[in-house]
Simulated scan of single mutants.
Amino acid sequence: MPDQDKDKELFAAICQKDQKAFEQLYRTHYRRLLVLAYQYVRNEETAEEIVNDVLLKIWMEAPRLNIAHSLRPYLSRSVVNRSLNVIRQENRLSAKFTQYQVNSGIPDSDEDEAAALEEQLLQLEKALEGLPPQCKKILLMSKFEKCKQQEIAERLNVSIKTVKNQLTIGYEKIRKAISGNVAFSIIFFIATIILGLFYEMPV
C-alpha cells in the first residue's frame, strides 16, 4: 500500500481517537520531523517541543483539520512554520538566519527538505550499523554515558590511545555517511537521535 494511502488510513483512525494509530503515526514521522525542526532552531529541547506540539495538534484537532492529501507534507510544513514562529518570537529571525538558509543549501520546498534530511538519516544509520562492535560501544559510552576517555579505557580494559582511535574512526564514518551541505553540528545531533533509538545503552 502506498505511503499516502497508509497516512490517509492512519489519519481517519486518529479522527476516531484510535490511540494505536496515533502511536504508529508518531513512530513513523517523529524522528524525521525532529531533525527538520532542529535544522531551524538549533536547540534539541526546542525542536522536541515543536514536534510534540505539531503531533499533539493532530491528535486533539484531527476532525477539524483540512488535510487534503498526505500527512507527510502537512506535518513538514507545520514543523517548519512553527520553527520559524519560535525564531521570530525569540527575535532571532535576522539577515544572518536568512544567509544561513542560503549557505546551507536548504531546498525551497519543505517537502524536498524533509526528504533530503531523511535520506541523510538513512545513510547515517547504515554507517552506524557498519561500525566495528568495539568502536560502536566506545562511541555509545562517550556520547550517552558521557564517559571520559580515561573511564572508557578502564572499563573496557584498553588503552587511552585505543579509545581515541576508535572515536576518530566512528566520527569519520559519520562524516563520510552524510553527503550535501548539512552543517556538522546537525550530523552529530542526527547521530544522537539514531543511536538513542536503535541501540541499547552499554551495561
Rank of each mutant, 00 (worst) to 15 (best):
G105I: 01
E111G: 01
L128M: 14
Q120N: 06
T162R: 00
R92C: 11
P132C: 01
K8D: 01
A68S: 09
F198L: 10
A62H: 02
I58T: 06
Y74E: 07
K137N: 09
E9C: 00
V79S: 05
L25Q: 01
L71C: 11
S70I: 02
V182S: 07
I186S: 08
S104T: 07
L131A: 07
L55I: 04
R72Q: 05
L36C: 10
F188Y: 01
P63S: 06
E113P: 00
Q99Y: 12
N52Q: 15
T162A: 05
N165Y: 11
F189H: 11
L124P: 04
N66W: 03
S70H: 12
A37S: 04
I178N: 02
T162S: 11
F198E: 12
R72G: 04
M60W: 08
E151K: 13
E61S: 13
L75Q: 11
H69E: 12
N157F: 02
N66I: 10
A47L: 06
K20E: 12
R72C: 08
N157H: 15
V163A: 01
L122R: 11
R27H: 13
E129T: 01
C15D: 02
E49F: 03
I169G: 00
M201S: 04
A183N: 12
E154S: 13
Y100T: 09
L131Q: 03
M141H: 01
F188H: 13
E45C: 09
K8C: 00
M60A: 15
I169C: 05
V158R: 07
E49T: 13
W59V: 01
K173T: 02
E44Y: 01
V163R: 05
Q149A: 08
Y30I: 03
G180S: 03
K96S: 10
L55M: 14
A62Y: 10
T28Q: 14
Q4F: 02
I187Y: 06
E172T: 14
G196D: 06
F97N: 11
A183R: 15
D108T: 13
S78F: 05
D5L: 11
G196Q: 05
L33A: 13
H29F: 11
T192Q: 14
L84W: 07
K173Q: 04
K161H: 08
S76M: 08
P73S: 04
V79M: 02
L117P: 09
K146F: 00
A116T: 08
L36W: 10
A116V: 05
K148Y: 00
G196A: 02
I169T: 10
Y38Q: 09
E145R: 14
S142Q: 05
A114W: 07
P2Y: 07
I186Y: 06
R82F: 03
D110H: 15
L167Q: 06
L128N: 02
K161R: 15
T162N: 11
I50Y: 07
L56C: 06
V86M: 06
G180L: 10
Q16F: 02
I50G: 00
D108E: 15
L65G: 05
K57S: 10
Q39N: 14
I50V: 13
I193A: 00
K6V: 06
F22P: 15
L36S: 03
N52S: 15
A191Y: 06
Q19V: 13
V79F: 02
N165E: 09
Y38G: 07
L71T: 04
R82N: 10
E119R: 14
I87V: 12
I50R: 01
L10M: 06
